[in-house]
Design a protein around this nucleic acid. Sequence first.
RNA 1: GCCCCCAUCGUCUAGUGGCCUAGGACACCGCCCUUUCACGGCGAAGGCAGGGGUUCAAAUCCCCUUGGGGGUACCA
Length: 494
Amino acid sequence: MDSVRVRFAPSPTGHLHVGGARTALFNWLFARQHQGTFVLRIEDTDLARSTTESVDGILEGMRFLGLDWDEGPEKGGSYGPYFQSQRLTLYRRYADQLRRDGWAYECFCTSEELEAMREEARKNKEDPKYDGRCRRLTAAEREERRDQGRTSVLRFKTNYDGSTILDDAIRGRVSFDNRQLDDFVVQKTNGMPTYNFAVVIDDALMEISHVIRGEDHISNTPKQIQIYGALGFTVPDFAHIPMILGPDKSRLSKRHGATSVTQFREEGYIPEALVNYLALLGWGYDDSQTVFSVSELIDKFSLERVSKNPAVFDLQKLEWLNGVYIRDLDLETLYERALPFFVKAGFAERRPSQEEKKKIQAVLASLQSRIRRLDEIPQAASYFFGDIAEYDAKAVRKVLLKEGTAEILEYVAGELAALPGFEEEDLKPVFAQAMEEFDCKLGKIMQPVRVAVTGTTSSPSMYEVLPVLGRDEAVRRLRKAQQIISQRWEAEQT
RNA sequence: GCCCCCAUCGUCUAGUGGCCUAGGACACCGCCCUUUCACGGCGAAGGCAGGGGUUCAAAUCCCCUUGGGGGUACCA
């Protein structure tokens, strides 16, 4: 294969959407696999809707996912500029060429006329297409309109004969009857190119070899192919990847929940998991593997294996995968990823001391198999960093208020208070003795301690929680639980 | 309306005419492990949209129907 050049070309009108991110990922994987070039191009010809904040957000999202681009914003490259708004002279030049060669013509129709035309067509049950009236204008008529000061757009002289064939890498041969097309606008009144025009100029000039994009662009392709032809450009290979849908099978959008990459980051998803999940949306490898490292993806990805049908975004599976990756992280990396969430919860300073760091890592070690998202940390770790905010009512009732619990807590508190060390091996004998003392199973001892120390019935092992809290705090909480028990008991007497 | 695309468990998918009594993953349910909760292990349930062809043989090829998605802009 000749040198591979692919691109991701978002329009900066919002955040990096997961659909866009998946398109970017497929392009990136394809480029990396073929030692090709991955170009990032910003399609900001819609002045009204494009913002620089959006550009920043998109770049940030790309970086978060680890999708580095070889050419594009902040990076440059020999095919620039990489913002369409900075390529206007190029578009103008080719627009002029089209007109000069008789492939395009000025159209003076106003939007009102156009709307009336479409309305009329609908009424007559015809296709709401441009009827080509300005195509038939004589030179004199055009001159007259220009003199009247009427503005114009440039329309492409579509070839209505035969059909346009698209050999799609994913869908195979797709044929479009050219009579379905109309003379579409290539240059707007304000001089800006339309999408269908700019995309062709850019892809051709940037020598893009494979256009990998969403299926929503498939209907545009015949128009673009005609422009390639009119300008004498080589048509690239196309691959149209399926859409991503919400649970209700409609196109994935905000109303389905989080859709932007930044949002997923804030919700505690880690990039490896997101990348893995996105790869699985519309692509599969074989009948056994679902967890793929990035390098495996680069190695195994192929357009041939991209499926044709739209995929429903399954948040539960993403969460599961995120949990898989969280569990797989070594403690140091997990710490780095999780620290912002501790900071946000007020559990840590931005730059923790060695001692703080040790504690956070101990907490993370206990939590690692228990959380699926980093943003569960404030909730899951709260009792490690402050008093118990609220005792679970059911836990108090079913565990603390049980007959004999006060005695057990009294015993354990006393024993723990006398302990010289406070690590697992120091604690074990205490609980072993308690079992003998009260002639019961371990659970009978541990559950009251757990509720006393965490306020809930579910937590990591006491052998992990207790050492992190330290002797004084642990004993304090056991005593406090005793108080709660006696208070409740008294309350019941009256 | 017209054009284009798509159709395997609830979801993502494996399957490219016989290896399919359709495989895996998530979710769900049950059991085991266990100081609780997770993790982990084992197991159950669950699908070829419908109808016609082609063929000795169809989830796989063809046609129709139905359903879903996309497009039909001076948005990208």
